[in-house]
Amino acid sequence: MKNRIFLHGLNLALCGLAVAAFVACGDDGGEGSGGAGGGSGSTTSGSVSSTTTTTGTTDPTTTTTTSSSSAASTSATTGTGGGPQSIELIDDMEDNDNAILAEGGRVGYWYTFNDETAGATQNPPPDPEGTGETPFTMTELAPARGQSTTAARSWGSGFETWGAGFGFDLNSPEGTKAAYDASTYTGITFWAKVGAGSVKSATVMISDPGTDTAGTVCTTECDKWQKTLALTEEWQQFTIPFAELKQGGWGTPAGTEQIDATQLYSIQFQVGVAPEFDLYIDDLGFYN
């Protein structure tokens, strides 16, 4: 088992986004990315299949889950307002390693990134040298969210330029980041919350050839497709169509009106400048 996390501190920023009293503003660039051997840690995870029924958009206490060794997919209803009819899990976090689920041709590994403000702290910490000494690990939930017992989490304080975040590449075997075709899906869905004392806003970001250095459009100011979320200390499910994602408006234009879902590179979550942050993400998947 390889356990390596790699930070490329290039081209990640946000500007002009605000939710409530929070504003995330970007610098000239700073981008996190990772992959086995040349990115984040490399750990093999098995396939998981689950079927989940939820009864609202807050933390479910009556969630029923069954598992098998087939493809990771979930049927869900989210109560008033509707929601995803089918979900293919990218990661349910329950295997407690730093790899996303090995399903649908996806190979990726969780990593953290930040603006490198002197004296600031982030956990799990970035591992710029890729030594594997501090691989990304999942956080045990107390209390559990229904039958979910662990989640992806990053927390810290003191970042003063554009903030910090965490995420993964969708297709990075042996350290080479490649595009992943997600065009058969409508968007992404996940559960999220913040810890006590945390800033109550975060931005989900997805990159494609026009918004990632792996493409041919941007080199230093890659302005990812994104959506800013208002969060609370209670779990909420977010269902975000690809069509709702917009660039932040601060960097290189992608050259397209919408994200190119046939060629996705990474999914990341970022908090902006704030005294404290503590962000949890759970049961992340593509949906239709």
Rank of each mutant, 00 (worst) to 15 (best):
V204R: 06
V271I: 12
R4F: 15
G248Y: 02
A261K: 02
A71D: 04
E233S: 13
E160A: 14
G165H: 04
I90E: 03
V204H: 03
L245M: 06
F136Q: 05
T161R: 12
K200E: 15
S157F: 10
F113I: 08
Y265C: 04
G56K: 06
I259C: 08
D95K: 12
P60Y: 02
E140I: 06
D59I: 11
E244K: 00
S157K: 08
K227I: 08
K246V: 13
F242K: 01
W162N: 00
A164H: 10
D260A: 09
T121L: 10
N114T: 08
P128I: 01
A76E: 08
S70Q: 14
E94C: 08
V194F: 04
I281G: 04
Q226E: 10
V194M: 08
T211W: 00
N171F: 07
N123M: 09
E31T: 08
F286L: 03
A118S: 14
G272C: 09
T131R: 00
E94S: 03
I100A: 06
S148A: 01
T80I: 10
A274H: 02
T63Q: 12
T252F: 05
Y185W: 09
T220D: 13
E116R: 12
D115S: 08
P124A: 09
D91S: 13
S266R: 05
A99I: 02
